[in-house]
Design a protein around this nucleic acid. Sequence first.
DNA 1: AGCAGGTAGTTTATGTGTTAACTACTTGAG
DNA 2: CTCAAGTAGTTAACACATAAACTACCTGCT
Lengths: 172, 172
Amino acid sequence: MTAGELDFWSFVELANTRLTAEFGFSHQLATEVLLTLNRASNVITYDLEATVHRPRGRSWSGFRLLFVTWLAGPLEAKKAAELTGMSRAAVSNLAKTLVDDGMLERTPGEHDGRSVLLSLTERGQAEMVEVFRAQNEREHEWAGVLTETEQRILVMLLNKLITDRARFRGRT
Amino acid sequence: MTAGELDFWSFVELANTRLTAEFGFSHQLATEVLLTLNRASNVITYDLEATVHRPRGRSWSGFRLLFVTWLAGPLEAKKAAELTGMSRAAVSNLAKTLVDDGMLERTPGEHDGRSVLLSLTERGQAEMVEVFRAQNEREHEWAGVLTETEQRILVMLLNKLITDRARFRGRT
DNA sequence: AGCAGGTAGTTTATGTGTTAACTACTTGAG
DNA sequence: CTCAAGTAGTTAACACATAAACTACCTGCT
């Protein structure tokens, strides 16, 4: 029982076996789904951050905030938090550094004195086009190991997995 | 073009449209796959951390490290880093606090004076059984919106997506 | 009008992640 | 045998996440 030769997949197999045989847990498939889901997400995110964003002096979260702001136009900080899946505090902190970097602009909301509208500066827009070109190429390489049909099925299954999450009272 | 009514899904649709029509990017399906993958992973991870681990005074990463140590027996810090997908530094820091909490034990490696073996204390083992019971129930609720066949397909597609990642030179 | 309660955003404290630089040990070529 | 190179782990500096406390503003009931 040396752990020496384990990799992620043989670990999942080992976990399945021990959780069932030794501990009597019954939902191993659920465990496997979620282990694999997290693994896949982390591996790919790490790769995109390391190859596309860090070399350009940008972080993964910075990119996410710029991405939604780029495409969803000027939007409130709250909306940006929802779309990126971050907390409002995270958007607030991140926006501060992106404004300092000359990528983002913050203007007070028109109809509501509390709200702040985020939008890209001209430089921000230009940079997003370039950065997204690089990211999209890399995304294509990753997704390309699946056929188009497989990709569509994957998206469908993932959406099904989280669409119904209102059952659990969540942050969003 | 108010951003006011956007949710995650209509944002993905908007992104697809604008990236194609306005900017001429060609791999929207890849973008959609990866946006959805990350979203699903983050939503579920956040839920498990908030409902299962934080109430017990434990973090998501703490759980991951304890989980692999629990099931893959005493293992080297390096191996733990591989299996959890963390950096070695992260394992080192996290182990420190888990040792202080009385969950983990660190013993010097037998054959290699540099290495450290991580293993659970008795209390750690008992707690993992209880914590995993709660997590497994919650996992089952999440995965349960998919049929068993759908879950197997999802696992297969996710594995296919990352198995071949040796093409990209990655951390692991 | 005025105040209670709700909402948007920021700040603060804390925890955790990363990379890079460091220490300590092992290994193998000469 | 010795020393250069490699490897395991830790530490340090920094980036970024959260929850909770706080400020400022809006809204609607009386």
